[in-house]
Amino acid sequence: MSECNNDGKGFLLGALVGSVVGAAIALVFAPKSGRELRQDLNQGTKVALEKAEEWKDVVQEKGSEYSEMAIVKGSELKEKGTDFSKKAMDSTTQLTKDVSEKTKSLAKDVTEKTKDFSKDIAEKVKRDAKDVKDEVEKEAENIVQAEELANNSSEVKEEKD
C-alpha cells in the first residue's frame, strides 16, 4: 500500500513539475509582450496550483480509503487469527483429553491382563507344585517299599543262614 501512496505522490509531483515546465516553455517561446507573458505565467501558475490542489484532494481521498481498507483488513485478519488460535487451543485441549482417556483405558486393560496372567501363572505353579509333590510322595513310597523289601529280604537271608 505504501507503494501506491509513493506512486501517487510521484505522479502528482511529476504532473505539477511537468505543468510548470510546459507552461514556462510555451510562454518563453510564444511571441508575446512582457505584460502578456506575465499574465500568461500567472494564469498558468494558477491553473497548475488548481490542478495540484485537485490532485492533493484525490491523493488524500485515496489515502483515507486505503487507510480504512487497511484497518478493516487488519481487523479481519486479527479476528481470523484469534479464531484460528481458539480452534487450535480447543483442538489441543480435546486431543489432550482423548490421549489421557486412552492412556487410562490402556493402563486399565494392561492391569487387568496382568492380573489375569498372574492368576494363570499362579494356578499353573500350584498345579505343577501339586504334581511334583505327588511324584515325590510316590517316589517316597517306592523308596519305603524298596527298603521294606530289602529289609525283608535280609531277614529271610539271615533266617536261612
Rank of each mutant, 00 (worst) to 15 (best):
V17G: 13
E68L: 10
S67H: 03
D57S: 08
T82W: 13
M89A: 13
D90L: 04
D109I: 12
V99I: 08
N5T: 13
K62L: 05
S105M: 12
Y66A: 10
N42T: 15
V59D: 04
D7C: 12
L13W: 05
N6G: 06
L41M: 08
K78I: 08
L106W: 10
K9A: 13
K32L: 12
L41H: 03
K80S: 12
Q43D: 09
Q43L: 14
D98V: 01
D83I: 11
K80I: 15
L16G: 02
G22D: 05
S75A: 11
Y66W: 13
A48S: 09
T114A: 04
G22K: 00
G34R: 14
P31V: 00
A26P: 04
T93N: 15
K104F: 06
G22M: 04
L16K: 00
S64P: 02
E65C: 11
T111L: 10
A107S: 14
K80R: 15
S75R: 11
V99T: 02
N6S: 11
T93A: 11
I71F: 13
E76Y: 11
A26M: 09
S100K: 09
I71W: 09
I71R: 11
T93G: 11
E112N: 10
G34I: 13
V110L: 03
D98I: 02
S2D: 15
A24S: 06
E68R: 09
G63S: 02
G74C: 00
E3I: 06
F11K: 09
F11H: 11
G18C: 06
V58F: 08
S105F: 10
G44F: 04
N5D: 10
L41E: 03
R35K: 12
E101K: 05
M89Q: 15
G8H: 03
K78N: 10
D57K: 05
D90W: 02
N5W: 05
A24W: 02
D57L: 03
V17M: 14
K86D: 14
T82H: 10
A70G: 14
T96V: 13
V58E: 10
M69Q: 15
D40Y: 00
K108A: 09
K32Q: 14
D98W: 04
N42C: 14
E101S: 07
K56Y: 01
V59R: 05
S67A: 01
G44R: 03
N42V: 14
G8Y: 00
E101G: 06
K102W: 15
S67R: 02
N5Y: 06
K87G: 05
I71K: 12
V59F: 09
L49K: 03
Q94T: 10
K113Q: 05
D7R: 12
S67Y: 04
V28F: 02
I25R: 01
N42S: 14
E76C: 07
V99A: 01
D109H: 12
L77H: 06
K104Q: 07
E36M: 05
G63N: 04
L77C: 05
Q39L: 08
A24D: 05
L13C: 10
L95V: 02
K51T: 00
D57A: 07
L37V: 07
L16N: 00
L106G: 12
P31E: 02
S19H: 01
E50G: 01
V20E: 02
E65S: 12
L41R: 02
T114L: 05
T92M: 13
K80H: 14
G14N: 15
K51M: 08
M69E: 13
G44Q: 00
K46F: 04
K80M: 14
S105Y: 08
